[in-house]
Deep mutational scan, measured.
Amino acid sequence: LKTAGVNTTDKEMEVLHLRNVSFEDAGEYTCLAGNSIGLSHHSAWLTVLEALEERPAVMTSPLYLEIIIYCTGAFLISCMVGSVIVYKMKSGTKKSDFHSQMAVHKLAKSIPLRRQVTVSADSSASMNSGVLLVRPSRLSSSGTPMLAGVSEYELPEDPRWELPRDRLVLGKPLGEGCFGQVVLAEAIGLDKDKPNRVTKVAVKMLKSDATEKDLSDLISEMEMMKMIGKHKNIINLLGACTQDGPLYVIVEYASKGNLREYLQARRPPGLEYCYNPSHNPEEQLSSKDLVSCAYQVARGMEYLASKKCIHRDLAARNVLVTEDNVMKIADFGLARDIHHIDYYKKTTNGRLPVKWMAPEALFDRIYTHQSDVWSFGVLLWEIFTLGGSPYPGVPVEELFKLLKEGHRMDKPSNCTNELYMMMRDCWHAVPSQRPTFKQLVEDLDRIVALTSNQEYLDLSMPLDQYSPSFPDTRSSTCSSGEDSVFSHEPLPEEPCLPRHPAQLANGGLKRR
């Protein structure tokens, strides 16, 4: 031991701790050491302190810390799992109470259905409401065949629209698609105040090879029609059969078919879209009749726009005509997947739907009320060519290029400059510069009032120099000039209409 001194630092001082000593042992101690050379000694003081209470040693090893962490984590996880189980049990009790009230408590799974309603004014964004509309049932219905791709499903009954099956008599087919079909039928007692009145209706139903998605689409269309409500110039929902059998959606019946066929059937002799010497046209149409058709469609679209509904496929083929020549817009409630459109795929009647699409819908897939206005301009062109085919002879690839360059279709022969300028306004490259349906209704209403009933179509000018029955994407082998976009001569082996020498072909294109 070194004694503290003047020249001794703290580091040089050493402390020796002795245990089991008493206060009597306190004092100075000297350590002597010697050898043959000499003797040396050092002294140190022993200080006795009071004994401290002994405390248990605390484990601070890493293993002990890990044990604490794992135990704490396990406890927290157990609490979370327990909370989830309690929540599930409570929510399951509430669901079972709800389904027992709906009398569908025996169901095993559900079809996820979404009601898609486009509400954005400047995009294709949609509001999806995840309302459960249908659930599968283990119960089988008697007297009705089961669908191959869709098991029997039981829908919640809506008393406002439900019609008993025994009050619906199915008739002949009116048309069909890939998985759905429409048949003519007679409904008894659609009007609650007149329970014995028989009404001719159209009934939409699924085919035998339909899938769950097809069922989902049909129900979504029905729900959309319920929500949009009734208007004179749209196909209205009349009722539905949802209980004890396949789903039947009952809508208004339009006896004169779609507008395109309606116009073609009323072309003057010699100007029909397909040469037929025995062709006997229906009643002749006046200019006022054509303007009235456009006015009614505009009114229907104005109503749909007021309900925040974007059609996305407005064309003469999707406008139906009733016995009283009332125009009714159809298929506005269809669920369309705008992100998976095949631009080169034709519709069932051979038309390319892209020829009715606005550039922003075609290139950027942006659907708005103003893109519907563009389609309405093409529909106007169809009306005043009596069912002509837009951009005849123009392949899709060429159409993309022409639209980007600002080309537009030429004025039809039997169309006034004012109406043609309306078409051109609908085809404005900037969507915000196109008229609204409200403005179109006002303009067409004024034109109808000024147009005489006696103004019949000028038969001295050809209505349509093209054969719409030909595929639109076909290139002409005998077109006049180098560019078949601006002219389209008859093919030698097929009868077509004579070309008027002083008139540019109706399907020609102009640059805006």
Results as ranks from 00 to 15, higher is better:
Y391F: 15
G300D: 01
V354L: 03
K194I: 06
E223K: 12
I234V: 15
A210E: 03
E382A: 01
S306Y: 15
G350D: 02
P246S: 11
K230T: 05
H311D: 00
D458N: 07
L285F: 06
V201A: 10
F384I: 11
G388D: 01
K194Q: 05
M461V: 07
V291E: 08
A335E: 00
K230M: 03
V183L: 06
R312P: 01
N280H: 06
H340L: 08
K308M: 06
V321G: 02
G229R: 12
F363S: 07
Y367D: 02
D372N: 01
G406D: 03
G333S: 00
L463P: 13
M227I: 07
G350V: 02
C274R: 03
L238V: 11
M327K: 10
R474P: 06
V373L: 04
L237P: 13
P173T: 11
E360A: 03
S460F: 05
P195A: 09
K345Q: 07
C241R: 15
S375Y: 12
E455V: 07
Y456F: 12
I341M: 13
D166V: 05
V354M: 02
Y275N: 05
I338F: 02
A254T: 09
L314P: 02
K345R: 13
N414S: 13
N233S: 13
G257C: 06
E323G: 15
V378E: 14
L440M: 05
T477P: 10
E283D: 07
A210V: 06
M205K: 08
K328N: 14
D483G: 15
R260G: 01
G245D: 05
G177D: 02
K308E: 11
T347S: 08
A294T: 03
G481R: 15
K226T: 14
L419R: 00
W374C: 05
A315E: 00
I188F: 13
F437V: 04
T436I: 04
D342A: 14
L399H: 14
D464A: 08
P281T: 14
E221D: 15
L379H: 11
D410H: 13
M357R: 04
S255P: 10
R336G: 01
R167I: 06
L379V: 11
L184V: 14
A330G: 08
N276S: 11
L403M: 08
Q181P: 12
M421K: 05
F384Y: 15
V448L: 07
E455D: 07
A254S: 09
I338V: 09
R312L: 00
V251A: 15
C415F: 00
D331Y: 11
R267M: 00
G239W: 10
L380V: 05
E282D: 09
M422I: 11
L463M: 08
S469T: 05
T211S: 07
N325S: 10
V373A: 03
K404Q: 07
E221K: 02
L285R: 10
A358G: 04
Y466N: 08
G180V: 02
A305P: 01
R351Q: 15
L304R: 00
N325K: 07
I188S: 10
P268A: 03
E382V: 02
V373E: 07
R408S: 00
K204R: 02
H340Q: 07
C178S: 02
P353H: 03
A315S: 02
V430L: 08
R446P: 10
H231Y: 09
V249F: 03
S452P: 13
M222I: 14
Q439K: 13
Y420C: 00
D331N: 02
V430E: 09
D464Y: 08
L206S: 04
G377E: 02
E221Q: 04
A429S: 08
L459V: 06
M301K: 01
R267G: 00
E398Q: 13
K438E: 10
D193G: 11
S432L: 10
C293R: 04
L168P: 14
R197L: 05
H428P: 00
R267S: 00
